[in-house]
Design a protein around this nucleic acid. Structure first.
Ligand SMILES: [Zn+2]
Ligand SMILES: [Zn+2]
Length: 956
DNA sequence: ATAGCCTTGATT
DNA sequence: AATCAAGGCTAT
């Protein structure tokens, strides 16, 4: 073993190093100059040592010629007894294992410089017990050419480790660490570094099991940059003070009991992020997090993130432990949102609104940095001061994207309340809903249906020739939509060259013609958000010709013309209400096509032209192998569903200014096969049904969202990390559940009654008999809504599946929400579902009836049990006998969903269900009566109402 | 790297 | 032959 080391120990340097070392190996002695101090203090009473180590005398000579070393040596005080070996310079030193019981080593160094050419360390088992390790270094520089450490078992026990470094610089060319089991036990680890820079060309860490146990970890760093492939950290208390933290991690898993993070600028690039936290405290003024898959394990905190951007000036989440399961969740002074904390505290006026889809929470409102909301039930109390942005940022993009559109411009709300609507509401309230529920519903969402229409007219009118990305002049259809030439080129370059950008700011850079060059990250993000299609970039770079989008472009053009004509004829003009024109609100890019074309085309095209089905290189790189397909890959490759999902067709849905006219009556609406004779029929449908249909989400929109989400999620995983079929199903179901929650939120009455004629009455109702002690109305609404959803989520989920199978019409295969086909042999559960689907198919269950059933399941918890016979009879009046037959089938649905829940529960207990799953949240036991849950995910989903409602109450 | 202009080639 | 959305080229 060779070591060439030169050290300069400054005067007065002191290192106090208490070491409990049972197995001290020679490398420790050789390796560092600290040996010098030890030599004086080696206890020699452990002469039983069986392994003798000899140090070359020249080494001592060299070292001890240094005066600083002399200083050091004389400054050391022996701990136990005193050895005189060190004083006899040049004498062969020998010592072995178990020599030292306790050593206090104190070192004060002003400049520590270590030059090592080749540092090689072979250790079988290294165990280090330190009670107090304190190192004060002004400038610590370590130059290593090749650092190789081979350790079988590395265990470090430190009770208090404190390191004060002004500038820590580590230059390593190749750092290779081979550890089979690395375990680090530290009680208190405190690291104060001004600038911590780690320059590593190739950092390779081979660890079988890397476990870091720290009870209190405190790290003060100004600039911390860490590139790690797989990082797993188990910490009890993690406190990190960082000014600028940049972490590039592929797979990041963090188990923390207490996590406290102080960061000024936090940038985290993570593909797969799994976080287990009991107590999470995060201090950040600027927090930018790039996560593809973010998994957070907290008792009552679940985070689903696709693209997660967190802007926090102070975010403290207190979760106090109370008796049992329902521990309180306290969120104090959280200023999460697209706007940073400083801006959040400002009065936000209309001028300051960025005209992007990300501003939905900057709606006109009282200048409050945060609002207090209390959720309470008997078992748990939640006190939170979330600002309106919290849920928006925490939840995943597909889920909230649309909602942003709806709530962004409350000014547009009071529009177009027709007599029919009023009558409809009355009718519904009389016939169907319990008064209490009606009360709760009255605080529902804004009138987003109408609002959306108005806005889309406005936007489309304004932005017809403007690039949705940058506002430049449109040069034609490019990669799916009308964009300018530069954005076309930018998108092409990005995708073709598989470019990865990072945003220096907070991923909210404004993209316009003048600033579009500033942040390619945000630009590309916007490209994707507005709907530019990756798959339109050709992997083979073939020039010319037409692709599958051709017909869609044509159709889109036709629709635009049609819309124009419609606008002209209906005399829409809302110039006064026009939002800032800088950026369009095309958040709800959606793709409609003929649902039935999916399986049909997949069957007809699959044998031929396999190359056209192959994903582009970019997609392959970005999303990994199309492992989404799993078993059903053989039926339908993942990409085919994109190839045949048509382009903007949803706009036409919003084009219809008259809500009573059925959407499917418009040409090209994507349900031609479902309503072979629907077009002439709509007028005969009851208004309620029409309304329900209108609230019903477009299946292809949902499908596209979910597919996008899953792909993004999948891209976060390592390529080798292939999720199981079940896990994928769970993710699908989870996403479906989110869409169901979204549907519930947008369901009738939330919006219709929101701007109803007697708002004061609504408030009175809610404050009075229903929840007399409630401080705010909105919270109770949420609670009630959570309860409603919690009561019926599985039925809704199963019904969603069943209806898809009804449409699918295949006994031996099931159609997934992603549009993929899978063999229906997964379990008996699936078979039962197929049977129910067959029965419902025999009854010719259609979309209208499904919408009604969903509605009933949500709003009448009794319907599935068929306890309320009078209700069923009431329903029959509207839907005639057929519907009653359907309702009779609901107990089957109930049984199926119960079985599915049980199955899910079992799998969850087996650890098969992916974490951070809304499904799991929903699996929590139901409350029998009205006291609501504070299930965090649901709360996240629903709390978007809250801000608006609180606001609304205040405005009263 | 950007963006304006050019070339290409399946579709019509 | 015309179209027009792809990719390519190149001055900036
Ligand atoms: Zn543009
Ligand atoms: Zn940016």
């Amino acid at each position: 073993m060779q070591l060439v080391a030169v050290s300069h120990w400054g005067r007065g340097s002191e290192l106090k190093f208490s070491l409990t070392c049972h197995h001290l190996y020679k490398w420790m002695v050789y390796g560092i100059e600290l040996v010098l101090g030890w030599k004086r203090n080696w206890q020699t009473n452990t002469s039983k040592s069986n392994r003798q180590v000899k140090l070359p005398s020249s080494y001592y000579d060299h070292v001890l010629q240094s005066s600083s070393v002399q200083t050091l040596l004389s400054g050391l005080s022996p701990q136990r007894g005193s050895s005189t070996r060190g004083e006899r310079l040049g004498e062969e030193m020998s010592f072995g294992e178990n020599i030292i019981e306790h050593i206090t080593f104190t070192l004060h160094v002003s400049t520590f410089t270590l030059h090592v050419n080749t540092f090689t360390l072979h250790v079988n088992a290294f165990t280090l017990h330190v009670s107090t390790f304190t190192l004060h270094v002004n400038t610590f520089t370590l130059h290593v050419n090749t650092f190789t450490l081979h350790v079988n078992t590395f265990t470090l026990h430190v009770s208090t480790f404190t390191l004060h470094v002004n500038t820590f610089t580590l230059h390593v060319n190749t750092f290779t660490l081979h550890v089979s089991t690395f375990t680090l036990h530290v009680n208190t680890f405190t690291l104060h570094v001004n600038t911590f820079t780690l320059h590593v060309n190739t950092f390779t860490l081979h660890v079988n099991t890397f476990t870091l146990h720290v009870s209190t970890f405190t790290l003060h760093v100004n600039t911390f940059t860490l590139h790690v492939n797989t990082f797993t950290l188990h910490v009890n208390t993690f406190t990190l003070h960082v000014n600028t933290f940049t972490l590039h991690v592929n797979t990041f898993t963090l188990h923390v009991n207490t996590f406290t993070l102080h960061v000024n600028t936090f940038t985290l690039h993570v593909n797969t992020f799994t976080l287990h936290v009991n107590t999470f405290t995060l201090h950040i003024s600027t927090f930018t997090l790039h996560v593809n898959t973010f998994t957070l394990h907290i008792s009552t905190f679940t985070l689903h993130v696709n693209t997660f951007t967190l802007h926090i000036s102070t975010f403290t989440l207190h979760r106090q432990s109370v008796s049992d399961a329902g521990a309180p969740l306290t969120c104090s002074h959280s200023t999460l949102g697209k706007q940073n904390g400083a801006r959040d505290k400002q009065q936000i006026d209309h001028q300051s609104l960025p005209a992007t889809a990300s501003i939905r929470h900057v709606t006109p409102r009282p200048p409050m940095a945060s609002r207090q909301c209390n959720f309470s039930d008997k078992r748990s109390a939640v006190k939170s001061e979330w600002t309106e942005g919290v849920h928006c940022e925490i939840s995943m993009r597909p889920f909230w994207l649309q909602q942003q559109t709806h709530s962004e411009h409350p000014d547009y709300l009071c529009v177009h309340r027709s007599q029919e609507q009023a009558a409809l509401l009355q009718q519904v309230s009389d016939q169907i809903l319990p008064a209490r529920l009606l009360s709760a519903l009255m605080l529902g969402d804004k009138a987003h249906g109408v609002t959306l229409k108005v806005m889309e007219y406005t936007y489309d009118d304004d932005l017809e020739e403007l690039c949705p990305v940058c506002g430049d002049k449109v040069s034609g259809y490019h990669y799916g939509l009308l964009t300018c030439e530069s954005c076309k080129g930018f998108f092409k370059r990005t995708v073709q060259n598989n470019k990865r950008y990072t945003c220096a700011e907070n991923q909210e850079c404004k993209i316009d013609k003048t600033q579009r060059k500033r942040c390619p990250f945000c630009r590309f993000q916007k490209c994707l958000n507005v709907g530019m299609r990756l798959e339109a970039v050709r992997a083979d770079r073939m020039r010319g010709g037409r692709n599958k989008f051709g017909p869609m472009y044509k159709r889109d053009r036709a629709l635009k013309q049609q819309k124009k004509a419609l606008i002209r004829s209906s005399g829409f003009k809302l110039e006064s209400a026009a939002p800032p024109p800088a950026s369009p609100l095309q958040s709800d890019y959606s793709f409609t096509g003929t649902l039935h074309s999916l399986p049909t085309i997949s069957k007809s095209l699959l044998p031929s032209t396999p190359s056209s089905i192959t994903p582009t290189d970019y997609e392959a790189n970005l999303y990994g192998p199309p492992s989404l397909g799993m078993a059903m890959q053989s039926h339908l490759p993942l990409t085919t569903q994109y190839q045949y999902t048509a382009f903007p067709g949803r706009a036409i849905k919003a084009e219809c200014p008259d809500y009573t006219s059925s959407p499917e009556s418009l040409t090209g609406y994507p349900y031609p096969d479902m309503y072979p004779s629907a077009s002439p029929q709509p007028p005969s449908l009851p208004p309620l049904v029409l309304e329900l249909l209108r609230c019903d989400p477009d299946e292809l929109v949902v499908q596209n969202k979910i597919v996008t989400h899953l792909q993004q999620e999948q891209s976060g995983r390592a390529r080798l990390d292939k999720p199981s079929t079940f896990s994928l199903m769970c993710r699908m179901a989870d996403q479906t559940l989110f869409s169901i929650v979204e549907w519930a939120r947008s369901c009738i009455f939330f919006k219709e009654l929101r701007s109803g004629c007697n708002e004061l009455h609504t408030v009175t109702v809610l404050r009075g008999p229903v929840f007399p002690q409630s401080p705010t109305v909105a919270v109770l609404t949420d609670t009630y809504q959570m309860k409603l959803l919690h009561n019926c989520w599985s039925e809704l989920l199963v019904l969603d599946h069943i209806f898809r199978q009804v449409q699918h019409g295949q006994e031996d295969s099931i159609l997934l929400v992603t549009g993929q086909e899978a063999e229906a042999t997964l379990s008996g559960l699936v078979q039962r579902g197929q049977e129910l689907a067959a029965r419902l198919r025999a009854l010719q269950l259609d979309r209208r009836e499904t919408a009604c059933i969903k509605f009933l399941l949500l709003f009448n918890p009794n319907v599935k049990l068929l306890e309320d016979q009078a209700f069923v009879e009431g329903v029959q009046e509207q839907f005639q006998e057929k519907f009653s037959q359907l309702v009779v089938r609901l107990p089957e649905l109930r049984g199926l969903s119960t079985q599915a829940e049980d199955y899910l529960c079992y799998m969850h207990l087996s650890g098969e269900v992916p974490c951070n799953n809304l499904l799991i949240e929903m699996l929590q036991p139901r409350e029998p009566v009205c006291e609501g849950h504070t299930r965090s995910s649901v709360m996240c989903c629903l709390c978007s109402w809250r801000g608006e409602h609180v606001l609304w109450c205040l405005e009263l």
